[in-house]
């Protein structure tokens, strides 16, 4: 298959290794990978803040950049959920782009969803020794319904012990601009999430959205109780090196 990567703004700027590893894994699985130029962001930052016009413009740019792609895969449940869940609203009064948006919806996947549900290759032959816990990000779980795909991938990693996370379904308090606009609420929320991570006894925190992981690990580091944190792609990448 020819797969186009959606780098996502956060990984592009702060965690480029995630995008590189995603490209490496998909190539390893026998697919041709390309990264269409012009793509930048799904528009969620502006959309969630109520700036729909700005979000629409950014979304149009994204839609256009993937116009000729067959399959689009991104390393974030939240960004893909933005496309699936909100683009129809964003373009409800713009039939031309609504059609294009629907095309993108039908061909775009979050990485774990793509590997497990579409490619049906849950075992990537990875091995990694750690006691890990998994944070199910809200948008990936509730808006995109990725279900157990990430857990399925993790269960196939040799040497990885999975431990449960109490109140796993609770939001970590990231919420994009929420974390900056409502810093105190956001901090109270991440404090609880961080405590659950510490209580789990895990030495590795895994997730499918770097925004949430950046929030939780950033807090744990600030309180001097750092816990190693990896995007599931980073974990698979490390595990497949051996």
């Amino acid at each position: 298959m020819k797969v186009s990567l959606f780098a996502t703004c956060l990984a592009n700027a702060l965690y480029p290794d995630i995008d590189l590893t995603m490209a490496r894994i998909l190539t390893y699985l026998g697919h041709t990978v390309d990264v269409p130029e012009g793509q930048a962001c799904c528009g969620q930052i502006a959309f969630n803040s109520g700036y729909f016009d700005d979000a629409r413009e950014v979304a149009r740019t994204l839609i256009d950049s993937f116009e000729h792609s067959e399959i689009v895969v991104g390393p974030s449940g939240s960004c893909i959920a933005m496309i699936h869940h909100y683009y129809p609203t964003l373009f409800e009064n713009e039939p031309a782009y609504l059609k294009k948006a629907n095309d993108l919806i039908h061909k775009s996947y979050e990485f774990t969803q793509f590997v497990v549900d579409v490619l049906k290759t849950p075992d990537l032959g990875a091995s990694y020794s750690a006691k890990a816990t998994y944070h199910p990000s809200c948008h990936a779980t509730r808006l995109l319904s990725i279900g157990d795909a990430p857990l399925t991938l993790m269960k196939h990693i040799k040497g990885l012990e999975l431990v449960p996370l109490t109140e796993a379904q609770l939001c970590c308090g990231f919420g994009g601009t929420f974390s900056v606009k409502m810093p105190k609420l956001s901090t109270a929320m991440v404090a609880e999430k961080a405590q659950h991570v510490l209580d789990s006894g895990a030495d590795l925190l895994v997730g499918v959205d770097m925004g949430c992981l950046m929030n939780i690990s950033g807090y744990l580091e600030k309180i001097n109780k750092p816990v190693k944190t990896m995007h599931i792609i980073q974990l698979l990448g490390e595990g497949m090196k051996s």
Partner: peptide, 20 residues
């Protein structure tokens, strides 16, 4: 508002798009 309670990773010297 972020850094008072959390750290943040540095901006990568090269963005992924640049690297690619």
């Amino acid at each position: 508002n972020w850094t008072n309670s959390r750290t943040l990773p540095k901006v990568s010297p090269k963005s992924f798009m640049q690297m690619w």
